[in-house]
Simulated scan of single mutants.
Amino acid sequence: MANDTDAQFEKLLSEFELFPIPSQTYLELCRYPNRRYEEITSRLLAFFLQPKEEHGLTDLLLSSLLELIPLKIDAIDTSDIAVDLEVDASGKRLDILIQGRNFVIGIENKITAPLDNPLDKYKTLMIEQNKEFQGIVLSVNPIRSEDGINDMKGNDFINILYSSWFEKIKQNIGYFLVDGGNRYTIFLYDFMNTINNKESSLGRYPMSRFFLENYDRIDSLIDQFNKFKCDKDERYFERLSGYRESLNNSQEEWWIYGKDVLGVEIYFRSNDIDIDIGIESGFLPSSQSIFGSFRYRVTSWDKDSSTYITNKIVDALIKEYPHLNRENLVPHGNNCVSIWVETIELSGDSLDKHEDEDKKIIEKLKKLFNFINNFC
């Protein structure tokens, strides 16, 4: 039974590795909350839909959108366009209103929220402009509810998917891609990829379908992995606790953070500045054992201590540990630096060798502590 489960998990991982991992877009990195997501996207749309804005894409987005709209006009005039956001409609707000010389388009933008807006009031607003009009519910996923479909039909709205619009844009964007100096083309693609990733998260793309089709097995795999991690951390903690006990016999105050990091801090003053130098250490797993190797580093957690390490301690460490050089000094976190002093390869789960390895590790940590303490 265990072998069957292992084989299923191995097959699952092999299938997963076939999918490209999507990279985050710039907009995704901004982490806009869902309740403001439609507001943010509407602002971006308004910018790109206005042909005279500085993006230099002229009417690319507007003309691509118009190709999807059944406006009853022989010649649509896009020479004088107004794009407004949050337009009042009898006390309600229409997300985007586009007006040309001979047409008006109202857009209700739907990213994640359901369609429960007063489309009748939006229709009245468009009629009042005395032009050929069309209402659009622009959405990530098709509007499928019977109430939503009937509401759109009764108020001259149609449902256009972002994916359909983006496909038109990509068909028409050729000229602007030749002009590689237009940074707004990059911004536009980032925006489109952000929306496409929203579609992906809702099951429209192959990786999402893979997750949905294998939901229970993936859930079981994650559960087993989390149990493995808990067991690993407990075994790390048990072994590190022995190190801490031996090291603290020397009147040092070593601590364990998060069950898998053994460390100590060395406080002193230099030129009337408080300095806090740390030593951190821990195990790394290999493909064969959770005890693949053990490594330790000198580190800092503030700017002054980082400067002290960079200007004084590193050169001394290089003399004491000749395999090191300044390229081993790396930044981490905010205004912090560290230098990994050594990685010790271990025998894995061979308990008969653990005692000798433990003695070796403890001696190396003592040596580094004494070196830093005496230097400072």
Rank of each mutant, 00 (worst) to 15 (best):
G348D: 02
N373K: 11
S347N: 11
S350Y: 11
L368I: 11
K367F: 15
L368N: 09
K367G: 09
N373W: 05
K360Q: 09
K353W: 01
I361N: 10
E363V: 11
F369N: 12
N370I: 00
E342C: 12
F369P: 05
T343H: 03
E357T: 05
E342P: 11
D349Q: 09
G348W: 03
E342L: 08
K366H: 14
H354R: 04
K364F: 12
G348E: 02
I344E: 02
N373H: 11
E355M: 00
K360P: 01
E363C: 14
G348I: 02
D358I: 01
L346I: 07
E363R: 15
K353A: 05
K367C: 13
F371V: 01
D356W: 02
S347K: 10
L365H: 13
L368G: 09
I362V: 15
L346P: 07
L368E: 07
I361T: 12
E345D: 14
K353G: 00
S350P: 01
L351F: 08
D352Q: 10
L351W: 06
I344Q: 05
F369V: 02
E355Q: 02
L368D: 07
F371L: 07
I344F: 06
E363K: 15
I362S: 10
S350R: 13
N373I: 00
D349R: 08
K366R: 15
L351E: 10
D349S: 13
K367S: 15
H354W: 10
D356S: 09
E355C: 00
D356T: 06
K366Q: 15
L351R: 11
G348R: 05
D352W: 08
D349P: 07
F369D: 04
F371S: 02
I362F: 07
E342M: 09
L346A: 06
D352V: 09
T343G: 06
D356I: 05
E355I: 00
D349M: 09
N370K: 10
N373V: 01
F371M: 02
K360C: 06
N370V: 03
L351H: 08
D358N: 08
I361L: 10
I344N: 03
D358Y: 06
F371K: 04
K359R: 09
F369M: 03
L351P: 01
S350E: 13
K353F: 05
G348L: 04
L365G: 14
N370P: 02
F371Y: 06
S350N: 15
D349F: 05
I361W: 10
H354Q: 03
I372M: 01
K359L: 06
L368H: 12
K353Q: 07
